[in-house]
């Protein structure tokens, strides 16, 4: 069995992170922006797992589990905010939310 090296893991992680950045910077739909953030968190998890295996310790796995727990809390609060937003403004398009801009 030929094992996977560290470089390909980090390269995949970097590509996924960059895709998440594209989503956050270019999309107008708040829900898709949230999903892009989840994509970035997953890219970081992949890097954690890759480094963990390189070191032969399991600390990176523990961090990955923590990241997932924080992501779950973030998704719950974020989606509640989206629901609140939709109830008040009937939109999830981020460009329409300019009431606080000067």
């Amino acid at each position: 069995m030929e094992a996977v090296g560290l470089s390909p893991v980090l390269a995949v992680s970097a590509v996924l992170f960059a895709l998440g950045v594209v989503g956050v910077l270019t999309r107008k739909n708040a829900l898709i922006v949230f999903m892009s953030v989840e994509l970035m968190l997953n890219a970081v998890n992949l890097a954690f797992v890759g480094f963990s295996r390189e070191n032969g310790t399991v600390d990176g796995h523990v961090f990955a589990v923590f990241v997932m727990a924080v992501a779950a809390a973030e998704a719950a609060v974020g989606l509640a905010l989206v629901i609140l937003l939709f109830r008040n403004r009937v939109t999830v398009v981020l460009d329409d939310l300019d009431r606080m801009s000067g």
Binding site: S7, A11, A14, A18, L19, V21, V24, L25
Partner: peptide, 18 residues
Amino acid sequence: LLGIGVAALLGVGLIAGL
């Protein structure tokens, strides 16, 4: 285009760091 540019820069930078 700006967003894609920033993200591409970031991705290329991260991969170059390898």
